[in-house]
Computed example of a mutant assay.
Amino acid sequence: MKSIGDNIKKCRVEAGLSQADVAKLLKISTPAFCKIETGQTDLNISRLIQISKLFKISPSALISGIVIETESSEDLSGLKQQLLDKDEELNKLRKKVIELYDKLGM
């Protein structure tokens, strides 16, 4: 199991930030942040939340290392519209099937 520090490092690297960059954003020293990443310092809840907000992931994702990508509201709106369109198309096809059964006398 990866440690929280490993997960934080992964997020930092993916964001293209150095340890010094993240330390500055968190308003802590670079050595203090380095100790967080290497697991030499235990995180308190407030620091965990601060780091998770910085990387825009949930604290649980930071702990587990499992990040679930979320869709933006625009993407969700588009997907909902596609779903409605497909549902309408499906209803039309159902009507056609019923009409065909009626014509065949079934």
Rank of each mutant, 00 (worst) to 15 (best):
V97Q: 10
K35F: 00
E71M: 14
V13R: 12
E74Q: 14
L43G: 00
R12V: 12
G39W: 00
I8A: 06
K9H: 09
G105T: 00
L100F: 08
K80W: 11
I98E: 11
K10A: 15
I68V: 15
V67M: 06
K53T: 06
I28E: 00
L84M: 10
L93D: 11
L17H: 08
F33G: 00
P59T: 08
I36T: 00
V67K: 12
K86H: 10
I36Q: 00
D21E: 09
K86E: 10
T70E: 09
Q81S: 11
K96Q: 14
K9F: 07
S52T: 03
K10W: 08
S29I: 08
V13H: 05
M106R: 04
K103S: 06
F55Q: 01
K2E: 03
E69Q: 12
I45K: 07
K86D: 09
K9T: 13
K95M: 12
S77N: 11
N44S: 05
Q81Y: 07
R12Q: 12
L62W: 05
N91W: 13
S73V: 15
D42W: 07
I36P: 00
D6F: 11
S18A: 10
Q40E: 04
A61P: 02
A23E: 03
I45G: 02
I57A: 03
L17K: 15
Q50N: 07
Q81V: 12
L83F: 12
D6T: 11
R12W: 12
A15K: 12
K10I: 13
L48T: 01
F55T: 02
L26F: 05
G5D: 02
A61M: 05
S72R: 11
I68A: 09
D75Y: 13
T41Q: 05
D21A: 14
S60L: 13
Y101D: 06
L17S: 07
L104K: 06
N91S: 15
S29P: 00
N7D: 05
T70D: 06
K35V: 01
K96L: 14
Q40C: 01
I45N: 03
L93M: 14
I49K: 03
D85C: 10
D102Y: 06
L48W: 03
D75P: 03
P59G: 08
I36Y: 01
E14Q: 15
S60E: 10
R47H: 02
S52R: 04
D85W: 08
G78F: 10
G78I: 11
I36D: 02
P31R: 04
K10R: 15
L62V: 05
L90R: 14
V22L: 08
T38Q: 01
A32K: 02
P31H: 02
I49E: 04
V13F: 04
I45W: 06
K53C: 03
I8Q: 02
R12T: 10
R12N: 09
L76F: 11
T30P: 01
L43S: 02
I66T: 06
E69A: 13
K9D: 06
A61T: 07
S58A: 12
L100D: 02
S18N: 08
C34M: 03
K9S: 12
L48C: 03
T41S: 09
K35E: 00
N7K: 09
K2Y: 02
C11I: 06
G105E: 00
S60W: 05
N7Y: 08
I63Y: 03
R94Y: 13
K96T: 10
S18L: 12
Q81K: 15
